[in-house]
Design a protein around this nucleic acid. Structure first.
Lengths: 181, 181
DNA sequence: TCCCTCATGTAAGGTGTTACATGATTGG
DNA sequence: CCAATCATGTAACACCTTACATGAGGGA
């Protein structure tokens, strides 16, 4: 049996905040939790259908100006499943960092080229930090019972990015040292 | 077209250090780069065959005591492909952290339960740090032209785990505060 | 004798992405 | 009028894991 489907829980979780269309879920993911979660339409839409068959969600078709919209709500069964998942221990995740893999085999190319990669990584995380600040500003006015938890995950992202920046600087120095045995 | 296969490069990279069997590659991955890369036999063996057809690796069958072993070497073409990949920009990776997803939806369960999750995460990273030290000790005696790069990735792991520990402590405090609006 | 490690491999199947297809609405 | 966004969905397919299968050799 392959790995368990986690996307269903991200959708159930979002629906626990209130009814939403698949489109809105995707947008919300892209705007607010993209730094630790992604999903694609090609996965979301079929999955919502499947989950409706399983009785985890229900949809109410809305026709606004000749256009069909499917707004989903979480059912009691769905909420139970969400909570059960939340209480289950976190399954070990397989990390795969293409970036670190490249650094690991860095000896195949020049030290300068690896250095450039590190600079690129630094730029990525500077950009991320900028976007974290944006999210924080958006949060500033929000009042929601989940807000404390949202700030926790945001904080996680910030800390990790800052740690990565520090590593980038250290590594840049390390790689510029002569031969560095 | 779906995402490009990265496992092939991990295998080519390992073979750039010297000839190896599929079994040895898997063991090496599990022992030395497991903290940022994983692979399974069910993927490695078929892929090596495919890569041999593509001329990236060659195998020499060895029969040691009636048992068949396939020792692979990287070809010139394989080395070119490895370098080309190393020089390509790192493709954006889709991060998916089940742990953070659970924290994000933490409001569905009790604050104490989320706190326990955080404690569990802390334990994981303490264990990781312990294992990083082990790897470092193993490295102590090694002389290899790639060693500097290996230490860089190791350092990355350490820094990230330390940052995670700091986040865990901060979050534990934050969650134990009364209501914490 | 039994278990662990060495060693290779196949089959099945789930997960998730990209590309494609369609059409309405809204704002500049 | 044109572009962007809203909105849904299918088809194809690559990726990778798990479970299963097999068998030898070595050590306790």
């Amino acid at each position: 049996m392959a790995k368990q489907n986690k996307t269903r829980y991200s959708l159930l979780g979002l629906l626990s905040f209130g009814p939403m269309t698949g489109y809105e879920m995707k947008k919300l993911i892209d705007r607010s939790i993209y730094y630790f979660w992604t999903d694609s339409y090609g996965h979301i839409y079929p999955l919502l259908k499947k989950m409706e068959k399983e009785g985890l969600v229900v949809s109410r078709g809305e026709i606004t100006g000749g256009h069909q919209k499917n707004r989903f709500s979480i059912t009691e069964k769905g909420r139970r499943e969400l909570k059960a998942w939340l209480r289950n221990p976190v399954e070990p995740e397989s990390v795969r960092s293409e970036f670190l893999l490249k650094v690991f085999f860095g000896n195949q190319i020049s030290r300068k080229e690896v250095g450039d990669m590190v600079v690129g990584e630094k730029a990525k995380h500077l950009e991320l930090l900028r976007r974290y600040d944006e999210i924080e500003k958006e949060f500033a006015g929000v009042r929601h019972e989940s807000k404390q938890f949202w700030l926790c995950t945001l904080n996680y992202g910030k800390r990790l990015s800052k740690a990565t920046l520090a590593w980038c600087d250290e590594t840049t120095k390390e790689l510029s040292r002569k031969s560095g045995k």
